[in-house]
């Protein structure tokens, strides 16, 4: 415990790094994923802006990336990282990889929940003379908002989970801290304290997600 107290600044920094990685990945990845999900939904056969070519390409891309385990994805991305952010290690590298991984996961969540919107509602909007793009943003997205928020919450938990692997490329964060300062030194209280911190973060995210979804669903 004494050792933990001396290392408190490191612990605080680890929390900060986790927030940095998770925060950017969820926000930027979430937006990218939303865009990708909208494209998947809107271009699928019979949908608002059906386009076979676009759908096949994007669908294939998502299917290729999604099953890759995050650790391998992170390593495979290294040439791309070098070309774009100029580094393959550290928190930024992890954030880059996690943002992309989150985007692809979010795209499916968004697509699934939009597909579940009652076709009759879309027909009512079409009958009112609305344009496809306007239907997408003023009808389909608002109608699916509750489940989409819950989907995002699910992704948030996954992102926190994946962020623990950041230590692999020197990304820091809570997962890295639990390994270097905890298990490798047989300092179990540190491990459990880190686990507890992650649980609190996940619970807080889940609580916020549930709250927002409840408001959107008015339940």
């Amino acid at each position: 415990m004494d050792e933990f107290l001396t290392n408190l600044p490191v612990f605080r920094e680890a929390i900060g790094t986790t927030f940095y990685i998770v925060g950017i990945s969820v926000v930027v990845g979430g937006l990218l994923g939303l865009a990708l999900g909208l494209v998947l939904y809107a271009t699928r056969p019979g949908s608002l802006l059906a386009s076979r070519a676009v759908f096949i390409v994007v669908n294939l891309l998502v299917n290729i990336v999604r099953p890759i385990p995050f650790v391998i994805f992170l390593l495979a991305l290294q040439p791309v990282m070098l070309a774009t952010i100029g580094t393959t290690i550290g928190a930024d590298a992890v954030t880059f990889g996690l943002t992309l991984a989150a985007a692809f996961a979010v795209s499916r969540i968004v697509e699934q929940n939009l597909v579940a919107v009652e076709p009759g509602v879309i027909e009512a909007a079409r009958a009112a003379g609305a344009r496809p793009l306007s239907i997408l943003f003023t009808v389909v997205v608002p109608e699916a908002l509750g489940p989409v928020i819950l989907g995002y919450t699910f992704i948030f938990v996954g992102v926190v989970d994946m962020s623990a692997q950041a230590g692999l490329v020197g990304g820091g964060g809570l997962g890295d801290y639990a390994v270097t300062y905890g298990s490798q030194r047989y300092n179990w209280p540190v491990v459990y304290l880190t686990v507890a911190t992650i649980i609190v973060i996940v619970q807080a995210g889940q609580f916020l997600g549930n709250f927002l979804a409840r408001r959107a669903l008015r339940r």
């Binding site: 509602v121 027909e123 009112a128 609305a130 003023t138 608002p142």
Partner: peptide
Amino acid sequence: VRRDIGMIFQQFNLFRSRTVAGNVAYPLKV
């Protein structure tokens, strides 16, 4: 042409994300 043709449905097809007034206002916004 659709804006000059109203349509009602068996399952009503109201927008759950909008209030009663919001539903009626929708075609006007369009």
